[in-house]
Design a protein around this nucleic acid. Sequence first.
DNA 1: TTTTGGTGTTTGTTATAACAAACATCTTAA
DNA 2: TTAAGATGTTTGTTATAACAAACACCAAAA
Lengths: 234, 234
Amino acid sequence: MTALKRIEREPLWDLAHAQLRDALLAGRFAPGTVLTLRALAESFGTSITPVRDAVTRLVAQGVLQQGPRNAAIVPHLTARELGDLTVVRCALEGQAAREAARRCNTAGLERLKSLLATMQSLIAAKNLESYLDYHRQFHFEIYAMSGVPILVETIENMWLRCGPVLSFVIPEYVVLLKGWDHHTAALKAIVAGDADAAEREIVADITEAADYLASLADANGQLRRPLREALATS
Amino acid sequence: MTALKRIEREPLWDLAHAQLRDALLAGRFAPGTVLTLRALAESFGTSITPVRDAVTRLVAQGVLQQGPRNAAIVPHLTARELGDLTVVRCALEGQAAREAARRCNTAGLERLKSLLATMQSLIAAKNLESYLDYHRQFHFEIYAMSGVPILVETIENMWLRCGPVLSFVIPEYVVLLKGWDHHTAALKAIVAGDADAAEREIVADITEAADYLASLADANGQLRRPLREALATS
DNA sequence: TTTTGGTGTTTGTTATAACAAACATCTTAA
DNA sequence: TTAAGATGTTTGTTATAACAAACACCAAAA
C-alpha cells in the first residue's frame, strides 16, 4: 500500500555538492577565486553547514584547493599540472581500455557504436556543447566496460580535476585534427579484443588533446579559454 | 621579535581525520562497523562537528563507505576488490616507477639505498612493524622521485583504500618468497635509468603480494588476518 | 613619506539545540 | 501464537551563535 513511499530525501549538502561540482566543471568560477562559505550559503539559500560539507568533500577529492587559511579556492590549472594529469590519465585510461578490450560485451559495444554515430553527427552539425557530453559518455562507456569500479571512479576524479579545461576544445580542433578518429580506432580495437591497440588509441586521444590545450598556455603557464566569452561567477 | 609566533593552530577536524585514518590503516576497526558520529565525538572529546568533517572527508576519499542512511561504515575488502585495487595500483605505481627511472637524482637514490639497507636489517631482525613502515617509505620515495605530485597523491589514496590489509603480510612471506628482491631489482633498474625494468619490478612486487593476500580469502571472498590476534575496536 | 598601532570586518572553526527519519521494543488485538 | 501498531531511542542533518585568527583600513607619530 505504501507504493508511493519514495521520499527522495536527498540531503542539502548533496545538492550543494552536485551544483558546485557542475559549476566548477562548466568553468563558472574564475580560477583563483576564494569560495566563501557564507557567500555560497547565501547563494544556495541554506546555512553554512551544508555548503561546508560540500566544500570539504570537494577539497578531499582534489577538485578544490585549500588556500592559506583553509579557504577553498578554485584552482588555476597550469600547463605543468595539465601535463601531470595527462600522465596519470594515460596510465589509468589506457589500462581501462586494455581491460575493456578483454571483457567487452555485445550490449556495451552496441552502445558504443550508437554513441560514436551520434558524436559524428554532432560534429557535422558543429554542436560542440552536445558533442562534449557524448564524448564524455563514450569514454566512460569504455571505462565501465573494464568491470573495475575503482578504476572508473579514479578516472572520474581525474576528469573533475581537469575541470573546465576540458571544455576549451574548439570545433576547429575536433574537426581538423581528426581527434575523433582515435575514437573509431579505439572502438575497432576493442571489438577485435586487441588490448595493445585499444590502449594506444586512447592514450593518443588523451595526449593529442592535451598537446592542443598546452599550446593555449601563456608565458606563465596559465591555461585560458581560446575565444568565446568567459562567463563570470554567475 | 615575534620569532616564536608558531601557533600551530591545527583544526580539530584535521586531528580527527589523521587519527581516524591511522586507526583504519592499522585495522583497529572491525570491517562492517558503523562509525557513529556521536560515539566518535565522545572518544575524541569534541563535539560532532569536527568528526563530521573528518568522516565526510574520508568518505569522499573512498576510505570509508557510506551505508544505507548515509552512515559511515568501515569497508570489508573482498578478494575481488583487492584485485581491482591491484589493477589500479599496477597502472599507477608502474608509471611512477617508469618516471622515477627517467628523473632520478643522486639525493633520492642515496635515500633509497639507505632505506633498502634498513629494510634488510629489519627483515633479519624479524621486526615486522618497523619493516612495514620503511617498506612504505621506500615505495613512496620512488614515487616522489617521479616528480608528478598528482600521481603520488592518487597512489596514496589507493594505499589508504587497501587499508589494514597491507599489514596482513606475515614475516614468513616477506622472508621466504624473496619479496624484497623486487625492491633491490627496482632500485637497480632506476639507477640504470631502465624504465621498463623499473615498471616490471614494481608491478611484480605488487602482484606477488596481492596474490599472497588473495590466498588468505575465505569462501566468501572476505580477507582476514592470518594468525596474530585481531585487536577489537579499541 | 613611511611606519606603527589600533579598530572593525571578514571568515573558518566549534559547540549546541532542534528536527526528522529509521530502528528497536513492547503492547495489544485477532 | 502471531501480526499490527504505538512509543521511545538512535542517528544523521541543519540552523544558529559564539569564538579567534587574519585581513583591511585608517590614523598618528617619526
